[in-house]
């Protein structure tokens, strides 16, 4: 006999799948439960896995070594000032610090982790050394044409237009490949859910009936 938890999981899975037919009361019930439960769940997750280990415990255990965390905690508290009209502007300061910090961090991460290595790795030899050279040509032409497609200072006409058209073809081919790859991943998710329904819910149930 499936447990109550399995019954609930199977019921809500079927409720969500009923959306494939059309919007219906079962889907609405499941949707509301899902949104409400997940909201409460994440409040607990944030409190226990973010605030407690990263702020509360370090301050409680060794305040003198971790006092600088008060700045981060203070910025977090400032965000809630938005609910007090007279000092709502204070929340903007916290947001500005948060956005500014991540723009700086991201900029270096992208340059260091993506732009420089990718440009360097695209500098491939085009001197003939077998069939691999053809792939080098495809790589170099692809990268340059896509870069030209994303060059916004020139109209896509004439030579620039021609090259950028090659670039968009490269993009579409890569999107096609990514589409197939992702669809395969989604189907495996569906299979996983079906395996749950059959093995953990339906099979024990049928076994019980027969």
């Amino acid at each position: 006999m499936p447990s109550l938890g399995t019954w609930l999981a199977a019921f809500f899975t079927l409720c969500m799948l009923s959306f494939l037919y059309k919007d219906n009361p079962f889907f609405r019930i499941a949707e509301s439960f899902f949104a409400g439960l997940s909201l409460g769940y994440y409040i607990g997750i944030v409190a226990n896995q973010t605030l407690k280990p990263n702020l509360v415990l370090p301050l409680a255990d060794n305040f003198s070594a971790n006092w600088h965390l008060l700045f981060a905690g203070g910025l977090g508290v400032m965000l809630y000032f938005r609910y007090i009209k007279r000092v709502a502007w204070v929340s903007r300061w916290a947001l500005a610090v948060y956005v500014g910090y991540y723009v700086g961090v991201n900029m270096m991460q992208k340059l260091h982790g993506e732009v420089l290595p990718q440009v360097g790795d695209t500098m491939l030899s085009l001197s003939w050394s077998g069939i691999g050279t053809l792939w080098n040509v495809v790589m170099v032409v692809g990268v340059l044409s896509v870069l030209i497609y994303f060059y916004f200072s020139a109209e896509h006409k004439g030579a620039v237009g021609g090259i950028s058209r090659v670039g968009i073809w490269f993009l579409m081919v890569s999107f096609g490949a990514a589409f197939g790859y992702t669809v395969m991943g989604r189907i495996s998710l569906l299979i996983g859910r079906m395996v749950f329904l059959v093995n953990e819910w339906a099979r024990p149930l049928i076994g019980l009936i027969t």
Binding site: G113, G120, L124, L126, V143, L144
Partner: peptide, 28 residues
């Protein structure tokens, strides 16, 4: 982007002739 494209073109040409220092300059 334009500078990177030019550097990329220069790097590909030099790499084809066996000169790797432009590529090395982009290595992390």
């Amino acid at each position: 982007k334009l500078l990177l494209m030019l550097a990329l073109g220069l790097g590909v040409i030099l790499e084809s002739f066996g000169v790797a220092f432009v590529k090395d300059a982009f290595r992390m």
